[in-house]
Nucleic acid binder design. Structure first.
Ligand SMILES: Nc1ncnc2c1ncn2[C@@H]1O[C@H](COP(=O)(O)OP(=O)(O)OP(=O)(O)O)[C@@H](O)[C@H]1O
Length: 900
DNA sequence: GATGGAACAGTTGTG
DNA sequence: CTGTTCCATC
């Protein structure tokens, strides 16, 4: 779906003039079952089908068909997708068929975004079962907000945080909400002591949310459903508007979501003598084998009982896979057939056999990343683009090693998910201001920003203000205005509070008349937020400060972009949108980069080339799924999802050793991690389908050497890869050592096919320390246009102090961040590991620059050095380019020519 | 009330 | 390893 479909290719880009004028055009290329689904008549319809069988394609065309062939108004259509991105894609495609004017009237989005949008209109008519009322300017609390709210609740109830762990309580309540329980309803159910306490917490938590005029994510769906249940007028209005409801990825629907669908699809009261499905449709599509969100209370049984819940429901099965090669499908099927809880289904392959699936066992996670990077280079040299490729992994933490090696090899990448833009401290600060301006009752945001930047208003004052606010039943902002009358507050403090309150009030007024970006400008100026960050940067107090400034600027850019494109560019929709967006890092047009994401995030997508990394017991399948058969089956479905993302080529990789949280799982000394066990999923694959590596039979354990001296281990492994019995196992680590990250030793990553990629330069089998272990990193790593003979780090990444300037992204949104910011900013450079940099610092040959120097750069043009960061020999230059804005560059990579 | 450093805790996935 | 919380000190 990321790639152009046949649909797009046929229509070209004629936005208003549809080329689909006849039903035969819309049905073109569809197989009979697909056509049946697209053209189905009134009533409920369930489409069950395996991966890549065109479910989403069918859903999209169905919408177009409803509009252009069945003469349904666009505004009667409500389509639910799993992600915002999928919604956007669906909108784009429909727009191409029916034109923008029509397409924009459809409602397409995730459950959360749809509910948020509709709730704004209807919420004031509603009183919660607990007796609370919310106003239409409610804000949406993210996990952090709701967790800190929860902490407050637990301490206020005098409960022990050790016994009632806030995180767990949050989680339990989230689960209850997803199962359709309101606090009120659960209060009737709770029996045991713990349940009763949980119920108390639940009630108090909801009361707190209401006092802040806020909802958490789960509330969006639950509350909207409640509104429909309790306000028949509202329900009927929506029921008669949305006569066509479509849901994608229905297997991952939870009870609360299903209730919502039902509320919308069924009338408040049945009209006698009339078929409720006249001119109404409900189409849900899904694949039980791709149900991977049970931890969010999704339940595929909801899909299986669809025909019972919606009586005359028609069932359509799609059985032809158009996406993957036969080999890839065989791999997927051989794995998923190990699940017992499933309904067997047919999935015929529509494509050629394709090549074998490449499997590779690396020494460690860095080695694994290098293998992937080398393959990427090979593939791109043969005409693939980076955009064709995706790197998938089970846990977000795994992206680090991959990023590090990608950066070092100057390969552009885009991370989806992970640490999100909107969760970064500085963004949350600024958004905190916006939320508070929008909804002055928002205590969480108030607490967040009251002392940011420092205003000399600390915890004591904050507590007093909050207490006063609660006692007098007013908002914290109102309390600030009355600060001078609060006892125990000193005159000076009171004045600061009053000033703060007045400032926010003023902005609140202002927000109704000026655009969001101007409001942002104003508040950043008046609070001196950026100035303070700049000071931090200058005094190197906060080495991330520059990146933060850049991120704040990015937020302003987002706001400006929003004002241009949104239907209603007000603060309200800006905040709603931002609270619900998950990944700002959508792949940029025209920018070639490889995508990195978790398996979960990959659901519904497809890529010509897929790398699936970390196939190790405990990681994938994840540790927490090892002792439950149900959980294990879900892991297996996740594996199935991963494999079936691939169109042409699939790579499976694992590492013999892996660092987790800085040490090996049950680690010995320092960097000794225990050896991993290959994932059971590998063994479930029919052997003949894999090339390169096949795991040893179950019982046979890997040879483990318990040694404190890691070098002894290293030598040992070079000679003893005693496994793979019978299958290809040509990985040659001969003479190598297993020190992390040392590729010296002439190891050949050939797998089965002797590719000429040589990682070693004939090194040194037993280095004595990281830094000076004989320059084993050959220069030919930098094949992508950079052939300078710089030593990229001697023996290992541990000693590397170059940051891969070539990985600068060209998009304007790339916040150049300092190396340590990598966690925050996935696109930034990797951490500087300086432990042995002294012995190792490579001779550099670049022109030293100073602040104020004018420089020229091939891509970014002319600029001025505004800052030099880091010690000599490691310095980076922060350059303000006339055209390209501010960039952080490593002179060892980026060619910076001094000009006058 | 701010600050820096020590101690501690987390370790699956997302809207 | 890394982010958060707690505590002593200014
Ligand atoms: N009739 C067809 N002829 C040719 N290609 C098709 C046909 N139907 C679907 N495809 C292609 O097959 C691919 C998979 O389609 P789609 O993403 O809709 O499948 P899906 O069932 O939603 O997959 P998943 O379950 O993995 O989300 C797409 O590239 C789509 O363009």
């Amino acid at each position: 779906m990321v790639l152009g479909s046949e649909l797009e290719m046929q229509t070209g880009s004629t936005p208003e003039q549809s080329e689909y004028r006849s039903d035969s055009e819309l049905l073109k290329n569809l197989n009979p079952q697909q056509a049946e689904a697209v053209t189905a008549g009134w009533g409920p319809c369930l489409v069950i089908a395996g991966a890549g069988s065109g479910k989403t394609t069918v859903l999209t065309r169905r919408i177009a068909y409803l509009i252009s062939e069945m003469n349904q108004e666009a505004e009667t259509i409500l389509a639910v997708t799993f992600t915002n991105k999928a919604a956007q894609e669906m909108k784009n495609r429909i727009e191409k068929i029916v034109g923008w004017q029509t397409a924009r009237k459809t409602v397409i989005g995730t459950f959360h975004s749809i509910c948020a949008r509709l709730l704004r209109y209807d919420i004031e008519e509603y009183t919660t079962p607990e007796g609370h009322k919310l106003k239409s300017n409610f804000v949406i609390y993210d996990e952090t907000d709701s967790l800190s709210l929860m902490k407050g609740v637990i301490s206020r109830l005098n409960l022990d945080e050790k016994v009632f762990v806030p995180r767990e309580m949050r989680y339990a309540i989230s689960a209850l909400k997803n199962d359709g329980f309101t606090a009120q309803l659960y209060a009737q159910e709770a029996k045991s002591y713990r349940e009763s306490r949980l119920s108390e917490i639940f009630l108090a938590y909801q009361a707190d949310l209401a006092r802040n005029n806020a909802m958490d994510f789960d509330d969006l769906i639950l509350t909207f459903t409640q509104v429909l249940k309790t306000c028949p007028g509202v329900r009927n209005r929506h029921h008669y508007r949305f006569r066509h409801i479509l849901v994608d990825e229905f297997q991952d629907t939870n009870r609360a979501q299903f209730d919502l669908i039902r509320m919308l699809a069924e009338p408040a009261e049945e009209v006698l003598g009339q078929d409720p499905w006249t001119e109404r449709t409900l189409m849900v599509v899904g694949d039980v084998d791709q149900s991977i969100y049970s931890w969010r209370k999704a339940d595929y049984k909801i899909m299986l009982s669809f025909q019972n819940d919606f009586k005359p429901a028609r069932l359509i099965k799609l059985e032809e896979n158009y996406r993957s090669t036969a080999t890839i499908l065989d791999v997927a099927n051989s794995i998923i057939s190990n699940n017992s809880e499933r309904i067997d289904k047919v999935l015929r392959c529509n494509r050629d056999k394709g090549g074998k699936v490449q499997c590779f066992e690396a020494q460690d996670e860095i080695d694994e990343a290098y293998y992937i990077v080398e393959e990427l280079k090979r593939l791109t040299a043969r005409g693939r683009t980076l955009k064709d490729c995706v790197l998938l992994y089970r846990t977000n933490a795994q992206s680090r090693a991959l990023e590090e090696v990608l950066v070092r090899n100057h390969i552009q990448y885009t991370i989806v998910g992970g640490t999100r833009f909107y969760e970064r401290q500085e963004i949350k600060d600024v958004l905190g201001y916006l939320k508070l301006i929008y909804n002055p009752a928002d205590g969480q945001s108030f607490n967040r920003v009251i002392n940011v930047p420092r205003r000399g208003l600390g915890k004591t004052t904050l507590d007093r203000v909050n207490q006063y606010a609660i006692e007098s039943g007013i908002s914290p902002i109102q309390a600030c205005l009355e600060a001078e009358t609060i006892r125990d507050i000193a005159g000076k403090t009171g004045k600061s509070l009053k000033e703060f309150g007045e400032m926010v009030n003023r902005w609140h007024m202002l927000s109704k008349s000026i655009p969001v970006s101007q409001l942002l400008d104003t508040l950043l100026k008046e609070t001196k937020y950026i100035d303070k960050l700049q000071e931090d940067a200058n005094s190197s107090k906060d080495e991330l400060a520059l990146g933060r400034i850049e991120n704040v600027r990015e937020l302003i850019a987002v706001a400006q972009e929003f004002e241009k494109s949104a239907d209603e560019p007000d603060l309200d929709s800006f905040l709603t949108r931002i609270s619900l967006v998950s990944d700002l890092d959508a792949v940029r047009e025209g920018e070639d980069s490889v995508t990195l994401m978790t398996l979960h995030a990959a659901k519904g997508l497809e890529f010509p080339v897929v790398f699936l990394s970390g196939l190790e017991e405990g990681l994938f399948p994840h540790m927490r799924s090892l002792d439950s058969e149900t959980a294990m089956e879900e892991e297996r479905r996740l594996m199935y999802v991963g494999v079936t993302r691939a169109e042409d080529s699939l790579y499976l990789t694992l590492a013999r050793k892996r660092m987790i949280l800085g040490r090996g799982p049950a680690g010995g000394s320092g960097f000794t991690s225990n050896y991993t066990v290959p994932s059971r999923f590998l063994r479930e694959i029919t052997p003949g389908l894999l090339a390169g590596y096949y795991p040893p039979p179950a019982g046979e354990r890997r040879q483990e050497i318990e040694q404190d001296d890691p070098f002894v281990q290293g030598g040992g492994w070079g000679q003893a890869p005693s496994r793979g019995g019978g299958y290809q196992n040509n990985n040659n680590y001969g003479g190598g050592n297993s020190r992390p990250n040392n590729y010296g030793g002439g190891g050949n990553y050939g797998g089965g096919n002797s590719r000429p990629t040589n990682y070693g330069s004939g090194g040194n089998s037993r280095p004595t320390n990281y830094g000076s272990s004989g320059n084993s990193r050959p220069t030919n790593y930098t094949s992508s246009g950079n052939s300078r003979p710089t030593n990229y780090g001697g023996g290992g990444y541990g000693s590397n102090n170059s940051y891969g300037g070539g990985a600068q992204r060209s998009g304007s949104s790339q916040p150049p961040a300092k190396p340590r910011a990598m966690r925050m900013d996935p696109n930034a450079q990797p951490p500087a590991k300086t432990q042995h940099s002294k012995e190792n610092s490579a001779p550099v040959s670049f022109e030293r620059l100073a602040v104020g120097d004018k420089v020229q750069h091939a891509k970014f043009g002319i600029g001025t050095v505004v800052q030099v960061i880091g010690d000599q020999d490691k310095e980076l230059y922060n350059v303000e380019f006339d055209e390209a804005g501010r960039r952080l560059l490593d002179p060892r990579f980026a060619k910076l020519i001094k000009t006058t």
